[in-house]
Design a protein around this nucleic acid. Structure first.
Lengths: 222, 222
DNA sequence: CACGTAAATTACCCGCAGGAAAGATAAAGT
DNA sequence: ACTTTATCTTTCCTGCGGGTAATTTACGTG
């Protein structure tokens, strides 16, 4: 039917040849294509037919890798969450003052927001998920929020951050960062790293107990 | 006028009496109910049947007041935008330093975000609108963004705000504020005014050229 | 009181997207 | 070579929700 140009980006399914390939690889390809389309058009407007078409396959083929559209949506979110959990663990492992940890978190989180899976954390609506998965999502969001608040509270305690309400401060910072997921375009003027750097300074400069210079070492004095 | 005083969010269509009422009043009631349901369930999940049911009428009756579901969505957004345009005009009329104007904008915008129509500005997806209406929405968002940037640039020029990149700073502030529309619940602990106050300080304290507000501007050379 | 009109209602249509069933095809095992 | 198994296609079903048509109800007015 549609004599599609052989390019079709990087689908493991070339029109009709070289079929068998690693299952996980194809599953990942489905996910990458799906998250792109979901972000482009919105979950409801994006159809599985359209996802399949981009992969040079047909809709029912998708059901070899996922049980439902909702499962695809959930896994997009899960990948984003996984990364956040990852760098939070790293930051915790490295230790440091509250302000230092907060700044690392802001930076990593901002960069993650400029990624498709990262943006999934805020661009998709949990109400599209099953009750089970929605509960998992809620737990994930809660965990991130707790981390922000904890770092802020830690900073107040150790004197690196001046006294403030951790809850509202966390909301303000997280809101700023989450919004990146809504306006960032990969073809924009600024690369993700630059945005992350800017936001790191902008969002924490008002919090430092003493004027601090950029990413230079923070002295923990008590 | 009314035999029995209806509570503010009760339907003007009591099952079978006192029907005829001012057309605009009913139109507004449809809008209020619709925006609530859209926010509760999301635009796609919320059906016109459900909207009608809450009003004690049936779906086709809605078409006496609106031409389509999309038109309802657009008007929800338009009402939110109208308010923003309103207080921006007021702030411009009052004048003042960049910082003063910015703080007023932040405060009013934050409060607006705690309102159904205000939240419409950020909770609904422009892609659900017709091309025409989407263009109007885009223009509105752009106008708000320009205002944020202008106040910041004004502040830098008049010395009330310390030098920074107006574009990213506007993004950071607007992001924080927009996010309120996603987490604020009317039955939460804090009233909108308190949140607005907190955010006003939190989001501008890092920007003031001089430690705190008050006092005349002092030129800071870098 | 009859009539016209606005605003409802009941009944219907239809297009679409998610998903299931059953048939094909290729690779791999025996 | 024959069978098996996973994978992909063709085909179809079904429910749902936006929107329309035809009909009724009720009020205002001459």
């Amino acid at each position: 039917m549609d004599a599609r140009p052989p390019s079709s980006d990087s689908s493991p399914w070339l029109p009709f040849e070289s079929r068998r390939r690693a299952r996980d690889e194809k599953r990942d390809a489905v996910l990458r294509t799906a998250v792109q389309l979901f972000l482009e058009q919105g979950y409801h407007r994006a159809t599985l037919n359209a996802v399949a078409e981009r992969l040079n396959i047909t809709k029912p083929a998708l059901y070899n890798y996922f049980r439902s559209k909702e499962e695809i949506l959930f896994e997009c979110w899960a990948l984003g969450q996984e990364r956040v959990d990852g760098f939070i663990a790293e930051i915790n492992a490295r230790g440091g003052s509250g302000l230092v940890k907060l700044r690392q978190l802001v930076r990593a989180y901002a960069e993650n927001m400029a990624d498709d899976y990262g943006a999934s954390l805020v661009r998709f609506d949990p109400r599209d998920l099953s009750e089970e998965n929605r509960a998992i999502v809620r737990a994930g969001k809660k965990s991130i929020d707790r981390t922000f608040r904890k770092y802020i509270a830690d900073g107040i305690k150790d004197g690196s951050i001046k006294p403030c309400d951790p809850k509202l401060t966390a909301f303000a910072i997280a809101g700023s960062l989450n919004w990146i997921g809504h306006w960032f375009q990969r073809d924009g003027a600024m690369p993700p790293a630059a945005i992350a750097d800017e936001f790191t300074d902008r969002l924490t400069e008002g919090l430092a107990a003493r004027p601090t210079k950029k990413t230079a070492s923070i002295r923990r004095k008590r």
